[in-house]
Every structure is written in structure tokens, then in C-alpha cells.
């Protein structure tokens, strides 16, 4: 926080999210790469853990508040905070202010963070002004799942499509019900596994019908859910985070695939 460099307008703090950190670090690296290509300096503030979303959505407001305070402190001073997840960004942007409705000081800080925090694809399009001509490459036909939080809390719909449109070799084929929930829902999918199974099965059916050979999305939770179901059902469509395709690193193993 004391480093004055962090306030430079060309510096971005990457909030990597716990799922990306643990399961798909390549998404984080792809995000770094994209931000640098767009001319930004990327920093990864130390001590990042969890934005508090699981606690907030489970009704544990005290814990959510505590984790939010940590994140607000860590991300203080940065001109931009970029998150490769619509649901974590949505928590920060839409819910942090609600959490501190009764704490004026923190409320100000939360609102300040809200104004600086972006989901990755939205940042790339609305702030950084991509697509430049150099996205990808990636060969294949992709279909895009609109993850709910990004779509409805942050209005992300056109941005990833615009970016994907600029990827060499990639064509986008929309599935039906692209805005219908996949049944992940954080703890929902383990609390109500049978309902979640039906929802994700419907989603997989739409993916399959689209005939695409890749499923893309902006939220790792949803992607792990859909990919896991596709693999269990033997559907060969491969799942990647949109950042991997944009950065041209989607030639490696897809989510849940073995290392080659």
C-alpha cells in the first residue's frame, strides 16, 4: 500500500480468486498476459484468499464482512482491480456496499473499491479498449455460457463475445438458453446435488445440441460444474475459461483433462 507505484493509472491489481488459484492457475496467467498485452502493469497483491462470497451467500454476514475488509485493504490504492470471475467481481461490486450499510467508514471504502473493480472481459473491452487484432489464436467452434452473476449483476454479455470475435481461427455458435443457470451456485451444487444434476444435465444438452467443440465461460465454478458433467456423460466438448482462449493458451488440456 505504501508503494506509490500502485496508484499509477496503468497498474492493475489482479484478484485471482480462490478457484483459479487452486484449480486453474493458467486462467490467472492468461489474465496477466492479456492485461500486459493491453499495456498494463500487473500486480498480484499479497495475502489474497477469498472474497467472502461463500459466507455471504450462506448467511454468515460477520465472516463475509471480515473477509471483505481484508480484500478492501489489500486492494486499496490500485487504479484498477481486475477479477477473472463474474461472481467474485459481482460480490465486490454489488454486495460489499450492502455489507457495510451500517459502517460509514467501511462503506466509503467499499464504494471506492466498487468503482475500481472489473470483471476481466469487461475491463478489456470497456476500459482497455480491446480487442486489438492479436487475440488467440485458437482453432475451433465455441459456444459461450453466460454465467449468472456476471450477466445479471454486472451486465456482461457482449464483452466476451466481442473479444472472442477477434480470435483468429475461432467461430462462435450460440446454444439455446445460454443465460440459464448451470446449477453450480457455489454450495448449492453439493447441498442439493440431485437438483443441480438436473440443471447441469439440461445445460450439457444445450451445449451438445449446439455442436460446438468448445464450451467457454467467464466463471471457473460453472465451467468445472459443466465440464465435470460432460465428462461423466462422455460428451467430448472441452471446457476452457474465456481468458485462456483469448490469450491463446487453450491448446493445453481442457478443464478436467489429463496433462499431455
Amino acid at each position: 500500500m505504501s508503494d506509490s507505484a500502485v496508484t499509477r493509472p496503468d497498474t492493475v491489481a489482479l484478484y485471482v480468486t480462490c478457484l483459479v488459484d487452486l484449480f486453474r492457475p493458467g486462467v490467472g496467467m492468461a489474465a496477466v498476459d492479456l492485461l500486459e498485452r493491453a499495456g498494463y502493469r500487473v500486480e498480484v497483491p499479497d495475502g489474497q484468499t477469498c472474497c467472502g462470497q461463500p459466507a455471504w451467500n450462506s448467511g454468515d454476514e460477520a465472516q463475509a464482512r471480515e473477509l471483505a475488509r481484508r480484500a478492501i485493504r489489500q486492494l486499496q490504492g490500485y487504479a484498477h482491480v481486475v477479477v477473472p470471475s463474474g461472481s467474485c467481481a459481482g460480490t465486490m461490486v454489488c454486495h460489499y456496499p450492502t455489507l457495510f450499510a451500517d459502517e460509514p467508514e467501511w462503506l466509503d471504502a467499499a464504494r471506492d473499491l466498487t468503482g475500481r473493480t472489473w470483471e476481466l472481459t469487461r475491463f478489456l473491452v470497456d476500459v482497455a479498449g480491446l480487442p486489438a487484432d492479436s487475440l488467440g489464436p485458437c482453432q475451433g467452434i465455441a459456444t459461450y455460457h453466460d454465467a449468472c452473476s456476471g450477466l445479471r449483476q454486472l451486465g456482461i454479455r457482449e464483452q466476451p463475445r466481442k473479444l472472442l470475435g477477434a480470435v483468429q481461427g475461432l467461430s462462435l455458435r450460440e446454444m439455446e438458453d445460454t443465460d440459464t443457470c448451470c446449477g453450480f451456485g457455489g454450495t448449492f451444487c453439493v447441498k442439493y446435488p440431485e437438483i443441480s444434476e438436473r440443471m447441469v444435465s439440461n445445460k450439457v444438452e444445450r451445449v451438445r445440441e449446439s455442436g460446438a467443440d468448445m464450451l467457454l465461460g467467464g466463471d471457473l465454478g460453472c465451467l468445472m460444474n459443466i465440464a465435470g458433467r460432460m465428462q461423466r456423460l462422455g460428451v467430448p466438448t472441452r471446457a476452457y475459461h474465456v481468458a485462456e482462449v483469448l490469450a491463446g493458451t487453450a491448446d493445453g488440456p481442457a478443464i478436467g483433462e489429463k496433462e499431455r
Binding site: 486453474r24 492457475p25 451444487c189 453439493v190 446435488p193 468445472m224 465440464a227 465435470g228 478443464i255 478436467g256
Partner: peptide, 25 residues
């Protein structure tokens, strides 16, 4: 995580965590 794996495969993490990769870089 039986709720998950009853109907879905669970993806194994891809390589070491982001933080480690970032530090290395």
C-alpha cells in the same frame, strides 16, 4: 464431496497453484 461426484467428475488442479507460478515468473 459425494454430492458433486455422484453425477460429475471433479477436475484435478492444473499444475501448482497460481501464486507459485506467479512468483516463479
Amino acid at each position: 464431496a459425494g454430492g458433486w461426484t455422484a453425477s460429475r467428475d471433479f477436475p484435478a488442479p492444473q499444475g501448482p497453484g497460481f501464486r507459485q507460478q506467479w512468483k516463479k515468473r
